[in-house]
C-alpha cells in the first residue's frame, strides 16, 4: 500500500527553487520493521497515519507505554482500531520494541 515515488521534482525545476508551484513529492522510505505475530494488524492500523519510523524511533518501551500509545491513537487521533487489534498491536509492539517491563 501507499506506493510513493521518489521524485525530487522541485530540485530539478530551477535554480530559484520553484517551491510548490509544482507538486512536491516527499520521498518514501521503506523502514525496516520487524516481522512477527500481529504485524498485519500494525500494518493495517498504524500506517494509515504515520510511517514505521514513528514506531522504531520511540526507543524501547514498556507494555504499558505501548498500550497507552495505541489507546491515544483511538482517543485523541480517532483512529478506528478495533478492541481486538488494540491487544494484537500492543503485544506486537511490546514484543519487538519493548524494554521487557510491563509498566
Amino acid at each position: 500500500m501507499m506506493k510513493k515515488i521518489i521524485i525530487l521534482t522541485i530540485l530539478s525545476i530551477s535554480a530559484l527553487f520553484a517551491q510548490v508551484n509544482e507538486a512536491v513529492e516527499v520521498p518514501y522510505i521503506s523502514y525496516e520493521i520487524k516481522m512477527g505475530k500481529g504485524f498485519d494488524a500494525v500494518n493495517a492500523n498504524c500506517l494509515m497515519c504515520h510511517s514505521f519510523g514513528y514506531i522504531i524511533n520511540q526507543g524501547p518501551q514498556s507494555k504499558d507505554f505501548w498500550h497507552k500509545k495505541v489507546v491515544k491513537m483511538i482517543v485523541h487521533f480517532k483512529a478506528p482500531i478495533s478492541k481486538e487489534d488494540v491487544e494484537i498491536t500492543t503485544n506486537y509492539l511490546f514484543e519487538h520494541y519493548g524494554n521487557g517491563a510491563l509498566k
Partner: peptide, 21 residues
C-alpha cells in the same frame, strides 16, 4: 544522515517520511 534527500534539503537524519521528521 540518511542517503535520501527530501525536497530542498540535503540528506539529514531521517526519523520518519510521513509525517516528515
Amino acid at each position: 544522515v540518511s542517503k535520501i534527500a527530501f525536497p530542498e534539503k540535503r540528506p539529514l537524519i531521517t526519523y520518519s517520511d510521513r509525517p516528515p521528521l
